[in-house]
Amino acid sequence: MMIKDAEVDLLLTDLMDLYGYDFTDYSKASLKRRINRLLLLDKFPSFAELRFRVKTDEDYLKRFVEEITVNVTEMFRDPSFYRYVREKVLKVLATYPLIRIWHAGCSTGEEVYSMAILLQEANLLHKSLLYATDLNPDVLEKARKGIFPLVNMKQYSENYILSGGTHEFSDYYTAKYDHAIFNKELSGKMIFATHNLVSDRSFNEFQLILCRNVLIYFDKDLQDRVLTLFDQSLDALGFLALGSKETLRFSTISNHYIQQDKEKIWRKKSS
């Protein structure tokens, strides 16, 4: 069974009307695949039954939202990106008395812990605040705990070394059964909060905003709106970091920004 476009639209309208979740400006191909996947996973005999469940069962709604958004993430994904942050961006941030960083769409937090490790190694963590937001409260709960599957540590450790890390990666966590429990001092400066990029506003000013692999799920107009939100939330000379296939080019804010080398990092001009 494959869901039809009109059915996707029906569900999106329900989510909007009943719960205020607005997915209408998301890229449709991904949403549709996620909904089909959920129909199979949760063994719904028909679209109508899925729709009924979403409309009547709040607990299921949570699962639905969690599953139709993509939460896949990694520590030190794209090591050259982290290397650039380590070698160039943190040098600039070090000059501020208080460093404010926003991870928008942080998912389960692997990216935030990676950043905390960089900050700690640069001796900046003590004067940093890492705001980590996502629309999905469940992933934030996982991020808050800082417990990640142990099987991934080999890959993360390799990424870490490629990013220029010189410490023993395993010093940052304690292995317990099949989990890696990250040190509490890393999460001490993290602030987790739900924030919906579609409907919520700017809530602070930052020197660095990371929003990686989130915009790919939005259509062009929504991408532009969200980039404007970031522009409003970024200090002059602050940095904006996107995913490896995302770009500021073609957006209305691009004139105020200069791309840094070949990385997906842009610096805001002074005025």
Binding site: D5, S27, K28, A29, S30, R33, R34, V70, V72, N213, I216, Y217, G243, K245
Partner: peptide, 17 residues
């Protein structure tokens, strides 16, 4: 990345499982 094709004949990238 997964490469998805949208109904309006544009590409979307997807970082799912």
């Amino acid at each position: 990345y997964h490469l998805l094709i949208e109904n309006d004949k544009t590409f979307s990238l997807d970082y799912s499982e």
